[in-house]
Design a protein around this nucleic acid. Structure first.
Length: 825
DNA sequence: ACCTCTGGCTGGATAT
DNA sequence: ATATCCAGCCAG
């Protein structure tokens, strides 16, 4: 117990359970010294498992390694009842197996039935798996009670005691002080005798020739191994260079530096740098205890710190979309730095082995510097984000980096189960009891019906107001008490509490755990962090911080609905996802009925938003009041459009807001795979549309738009273009061989690249030009200007503009008409 | 290897 | 020649 009290004073960086050794270890950061301490725990967290037997029965089983069997009561949410369980403590974990699966197997062999997940260390909240200091530590970092109460009151005053308690805890957690951690960015270069071969990190046969290290403490250095080719630098560099004669000496020194930092970041270090260093060190007979790198199933870690692999992190869709606004597409260091930092790697034209010493030094150092800058830009945004994600998900930082959003939500929900003494259902029993859906999806092959999209009213509309529901799906989860245990609950009395359009019913007797949790996070985001992130009375720095928290909460809220429809999620429960969507549709339809009954024209609507033609603010207020009263949902004024242009297509429109911002949604002209040539023409058009204020200026804009299309059309006809600007850039979603059903153009181009010896694979973006020859495509690198299929591009230009032009009532024929006449002149 | 969901548009490949 | 499917990208 003493151990627990002690470790709570530190920031938890990581934890692991070593089944074989029977030991748990926790990595904590001492915020004063920035040192990592490891706490081994052999006594307090003996492994245990639960079986559904009486204590006597279990004791009589005489299980190998069993030291005690304790009876305890837990709650089975799925069946709404208390369950008596026997907790078996084992002195020798091997006796009951190292992992959950092997325990399950063994217990089966004992003819016992384990109905629930086996819970190890995190069970019962034994580990304070939150990276913040608790009271009684080095200093108080959490806000005091009065402050928390004040914040909770700001969010909403009419909470029950239980809700207040939960809310207070979250506020306290998310408002807790942020920690600055000392960190190091690292990159290595390996010299392969065959330039095209990627050195294998498991064999580590080739020499490590350079290691670059950039630290938050100002460290800027590159270690270089003296070889036949590389020696002392001839130029001066902005970083320190240390030249080594002996590779083992160099690595030893690198290991020493690594050991001094609690956080080490790499790009792809899980799969390359870290295992390479580890195995190379072993190959050079460096004793294992001098190598601070540990390799696990999920990636590489450090004995005295944590390792953040930015490649894995940036691959995470939630990070890509919500944290970085989808600014980068490709997951390479070059593409990500270009998108986020506005600069890329040092360009080299030769393989590593043919560089000069100075070129190699620069190349290596600036890679490490990019990693460092990705970690630190915008006042360490990324690190702050990781800490807050860790706090919400209750995962150590290393796990946050390596898991997707479903892993984060799993951890959060499990944590809530455990601390309340609820049993976590197994996926198979959950499916057996709840695995039915009752609606038919609009799209073939989907599991259930999703959102409604209203057919737009084509044409140009002035003064349009957009209302939308704030966090619709999370609000529905909250207000309708949706959760895996409350949807299709076991009570007969609840069966008439039906979800519209489905055969599902919802529990009236118990509060759903997911509904409560997500509802709470929603209230905190909407009621505190979102408004604070744009509060002009707060200092810039603090607003930024609130915006990070706000965005992190958004990730959880958005995914909270989707994961229940995802087979890989351990609490997969399709009726929950289906009911959420069905209730959202119900609210959406009711809203549209309501506004129509008030005589307002609905121009468009998608999922949670309605576009209205009205200039009477009192009408809007009435709708908002109505929604709050009848639907218990927050309908908000989202935007006002000066004017908005719709074609007949859904999810396709263009508008100018009252602030003069051009909003383009779904139009081909803004998609990122289209040629720059067409995008530029499109952007020219947007500039014209931005200037429009009324019908008169609108007509002028129309004329200029016709002129723009004509100009770009002529540029194509006359060959006034760069090949690069004509290239489409489409991502290869899988490796080329795995396209078996069809061969799309970018795959054709990729095949051509491969046949010319250029390696391409999943995730690469293929740049190709449409040509007149047999295949119709040519990779950008090999395309020649005279091959270009100009007619195809003209077709593409017109179809891109057509989405807007036909809504503006502009005759595309007239544009070509004039120009084809000119062609004769 | 990784993976929250459904709805909707596009161009091009493939089947009828 | 026409309908249907596939794949990519986007809205929410």
């Amino acid at each position: 117990m003493d151990e627990h009290l002690r470790v709570e004073r530190y920031f938890l960086l990581g934890s692991a359970y070593d089944g074989k050794a029977g030991k748990a270890y926790l990595k904590f950061l001492d915020p004063e010294t920035q040192e990592v301490r490891i706490v081994y725990d052999e006594s307090g967290h003996r492994p245990y498992c639960y079986v559904k037997e009486s204590v006597e029965q279990v004791k009589s089983m005489n299980l190998p390694g069993m030291v005690d069997a304790v009876e305890e009561v837990k709650y089975d949410l799925l069946r709404d009842r208390e369950v008596k369980l026997t907790k078996i403590l084992a002195s020798d974990p091997l006796a009951i197996g190292g992992g959950a699966n092997s325990i399950r197997e063994k217990v089966k062999a004992w003819e016992a039935d384990i109905p629930y997940h086996l819970c190890y260390l995190y069970d019962m909240g034994l580990i304070p798996c939150m990276p913040y200091q608790l009271n009684g530590g080095f200093r108080e970092v959490r806000p005091d009670e009065r402050e928390i109460r004040r914040i909770v009151d700001t969010i909403f005053k009419e909470f029950s005691e239980e809700e207040r308690r939960l809310l207070s805890e979250w506020v306290s957690l998310l408002e807790a002080e942020q920690l600055r951690v000392k960190h190091l960015s690292l990159d290595i270069e390996v010299l392969s005798p065959v330039p095209t071969r990627v050195p294998s990190p498991s064999k580590a046969k080739d020499k490590v020739v350079a290691v670059s290290l950039v630290g938050s403490d100002g460290r800027k250095e590159t270690y270089l191994l003296k070889t036949g080719r590389f020696g002392f630098p001839e130029q001066r560099h902005e970083f320190d260079v240390k030249v080594f004669e002996n590779e083992a000496d160099m690595l030893r020194q690198v290991f020493e530096v690594i050991s001094k930092y609690p956080v080490v970041a790499t790009f792809n270090g899980d799969d390359f740098d870290m295992p390479y260093l580890r195995h190379r060190g072993e190959a050079l007979n460096i004793p294992k205890e001098q190598i601070p790198i540990t390799l696990g199933r999920e990636g590489a870690s450090l004995r005295h710190g944590i390792h953040i692999d930015l490649y894995k992190l940036f691959n995470n869709k939630s990070i890509q979309i919500y944290a970085f606004d989808n600014k980068y597409r490709e997951h390479t260091l070059e593409a990500i730095s270009q998108a986020l930092l506005g600069k890329g790697k040092v360009e080299i034209e030769k393989p590593i082995g043919e560089l000069t010493t100075d070129e190699l030094l620069r190349y290596s150092f600036y890679d490490a510097l990019l990693v460092h800058e990705l970690l630190t830009f915008d006042n360490e945004l990324l690190l702050k984000l990781l800490f807050v994600l860790s706090r919400i998900s209750r995962l150590p930082i290393e796990d946050v980096c390596r898991h997707g959003v479903s892993g984060w939500i799993k951890s959060l929900l499990y944590f809530e189960h455990r601390r309340r003494g609820y049993l976590i259902p197994r996926p198979d029993e959950l499916i057996e009891e709840k695995g039915v859906t009752s609606t038919k999806a609009v799209i073939e092959g989907k599991k259930y019906r999703g959102a409604i999209v209203v057919n737009p009213l084509p044409g140009v509309h002035f003064n349009v107001i957009v209302l939308d529901f704030a966090s619709l799906y999370p609000s529905v989860l909250k207000e309708w008490n949706l959760s895996y245990e409350t949807v299709r609950c076991p009570h007969l009395e609840c069966r008439d509490n039906l979800v519209p359009e489905t055969s599902h019913w919802i529990c009236r007797k118990r509060r759903g755990i997911q509904s409560e949790l997500i509802g709470c996070l929603r209230d905190i985001r909407v009621g505190w962090f979102k408004p604070r992130s744009s509060d002009p009375n707060l200092p810039q720095e603090q607003r930024r911080w609130y915006s990070v928290v706000q965005r992190a909460l958004k990730v959880f809220l958005n995914a909270a609905y989707g994961v229940f429809g995802f087979e890989g999620f351990p609490l997969y429960c399709p009726p929950v996802a289906e009911s959420t969507a069905a209730i959202a549709r119900y609210a959406f339809k009711k809203t549209i009925e309501k506004v129509r009954s008030m005589g307002i024209t609905v121009i468009y609507g998608d999922t949670d938003s309605v576009f209205l033609k009205t200039d009477k603010p009192e009408m809007i207020e009435e709708v908002v009041r109505w929604a709050k009263k009848e639907l218990k949902l927050d309908l908000e004024l989202d935007k006002r459009y000066r004017y908005i242009v719709f074609s007949t297509r859904k999810k396709n429109y263009l508008g100018v807001t009252d602030k003069g911002v051009v909003d383009v949604k779904g139009l081909t002209g803004k998609k990122r795979h289209i040629p720059k040539f067409i995008k530029e023409a499109f952007d020219e058009m947007l500039k014209e549309l931005q200037k429009v204020h009324d019908e008169e200026s609108f007509n002028k804009a129309k004329e200029r738009i016709v002129e723009i299309v004509r100009t770009w059309y002529q540029k194509l006809r006359r060959g006034e273009y760069e090949l690069e600007d004509l290239s489409f850039r489409v991502m290869l979603s899988r490796s080329v061989e795995r396209y078996t059903k069809t061969t799309p153009p970018h795959v054709k181009a990729a095949r051509k690249l491969i046949s010319r010896g250029i390696q391409v694979g999943a995730g690469d973006i293929i740049a190709y030009v449409k040509t007149r020859d047999r295949d119709g495509v040519e990779p950008l690198e090999f395309a020649r200007k005279e091959q270009v299929d100009v007619d195809k591009y003209i077709e593409y230009l017109f179809s891109t503009f057509g989405q807007v032009l036909d809504a503006l009532d502009i005759d595309t024929e007239s544009i070509i008409g004039v120009t084809s006449l000119e062609r004769f002149l």
